[in-house]
Simulated scan of single mutants.
Amino acid sequence: MSVVEYTSKFNSLGTYAPAIMADDILKMHRFKRGLNSRIQSALAVYQPTGFDDLVGATIRAETDIKRREDENKNKRPLTGQSFQECRRNTGACFNCGKMGHRIANCPEPLKKMTWSNTNATPNKPKENKTNACMFAITQEEADDANDVVAGTVIINKISAYVLFDCGTTHSFISKRFTKKLGLLPEILVEPFRIATPTSKTIETHKIHRNCIIYINEHTFNAELIQVNMVEFDVIL
């Protein structure tokens, strides 16, 4: 199970444990406990600022682990050329590997040698796997879902039409609304690839950190990924 799939399931099951989901520290603790041991080790010294920050760090850790695994898989055995160079350096016979004679004078029957060609099979292109997903992006999709609610809240002291979606793995902000807030995005080296309800993948390099959300006299910091959407200002 990928981190994105695990996060989706965690948020879905979290609706049955509202006390845990309401406590950010307890929520992050329970989330960490469900991760595999390698990702837990990678996050051992990381101090997240919030749940969204923890999810982002977890996805980055998973990506890094997979990258190292792929690098190890791509390490090839000794090629024919390297094998020849090794025996040439030692003076051993190319046929039997023994010292004192060359392949032309080898007393043993010539062996059929096969050499691996490092250029024969090109590396496969990296798959553009999604590392985030949203389960509703339009008003119609929100109306069809039973685990979302829409309403107006204050973000950075400006009124915003917000969709609260407990199945979404990250929080998002529309490009149009960022201009209204006067925000400048942080440009990411690795993009977010977001799976949408229509199976379309949205890719973005832009994120807005430390956006302040005001709800019932409480304030929350949020990291909002910038996407092109029309019907909502923000999805949380």
Score class of each variant (00 low, 15 high):
Pro122Ile: 07
Gly100Val: 02
Ala132Gln: 04
Trp115Asp: 03
Asn89His: 14
Thr90Ile: 09
Phe94Asp: 00
Gln81Ser: 13
Gly91Ala: 09
Gly91Val: 00
Ala132Ser: 15
Gln84Leu: 15
Ala104Gly: 01
Ser82Phe: 04
Thr118Val: 06
Asn123His: 06
Ser116Trp: 10
Thr121Ser: 03
Gly97Gln: 05
Gln84His: 07
Gly97Ile: 08
Asn119Gly: 07
Lys124Phe: 10
Phe94Ala: 01
Lys98Ser: 07
Asn119Glu: 11
Asn123Val: 06
Glu85Met: 11
Lys112Glu: 09
Thr130Gln: 00
Met113Leu: 15
Ile103Glu: 09
Asn95Asp: 09
Gly100Leu: 03
Pro122Phe: 15
Ser82Leu: 04
Lys98Arg: 15
Phe83Cys: 00
Leu110Trp: 11
Asn95Cys: 11
Ile103Cys: 01
Asn131Met: 04
Glu85Val: 05
Phe94Val: 01
Lys98Trp: 04
Lys98Met: 12
Gly97Leu: 10
Thr114Pro: 00
Ala92Gly: 03
Met99Thr: 14
Cys93Lys: 04
Gln84Glu: 13
Asn123Trp: 02
Asn89Glu: 14
Asn117Ala: 07
Cys96Gly: 11
Ala132Phe: 11
Asn89Ala: 14
Asn105Tyr: 07
Thr118Leu: 04
Glu85Gln: 14
Thr130Cys: 09
Gly91Asp: 04
Ala120Val: 00
Ile103His: 06
Asn117Asp: 15
Glu127Phe: 02
Asn117Gln: 05
Pro109Tyr: 09
Phe83His: 11
Ala132Tyr: 08
Asn105Pro: 01
Cys96Lys: 06
Thr90Lys: 04
Leu110Ser: 10
Pro125Lys: 10
Asn89Lys: 15
Gly97Val: 03
His101Tyr: 05
Thr130Asp: 00
Cys96Ala: 12
Arg102Met: 11
Ala104Leu: 03
Arg88Asn: 14
Asn117Met: 10
Met99Asn: 05
Asn105Leu: 02
Pro125Phe: 12
Arg102Ala: 07
Arg87Glu: 03
Cys96His: 15
Pro122Trp: 02
Arg88Lys: 14
Ala104Met: 10
Ala120Ile: 03
Ala92Lys: 02
Arg87Gly: 00
Asn131Arg: 02
Phe94Gln: 05
Ile103Met: 06
Lys98Leu: 13
Arg102Thr: 15
Gln81Tyr: 14
Lys112Gly: 04
Trp115Ser: 09
Asn89Ile: 08
Trp115Gly: 04
Thr121Trp: 13
Gly91Lys: 00
Ala120Ser: 14
Glu108Val: 06
Lys111Phe: 08
Asn117Ser: 12
Lys129His: 09
Arg87Asn: 05
Phe83Asp: 11
Thr114Val: 10
Ala132Arg: 04
Thr114Tyr: 15
Asn95Thr: 09
Gly97Cys: 13
Gln84Ser: 13
Cys96Trp: 15
Ser116Val: 07
Ala132Val: 04
Cys93Thr: 05
His101Trp: 06
Cys86Thr: 09
Asn105Ala: 14
Lys98Asn: 10
Ser116Phe: 05
Phe83Asn: 06
Gly91Tyr: 07
Cys86His: 11
Lys111Glu: 13
Pro109Thr: 14
Glu108Ala: 14
Lys124Ala: 09
Pro125Asp: 12
Thr90Asp: 06
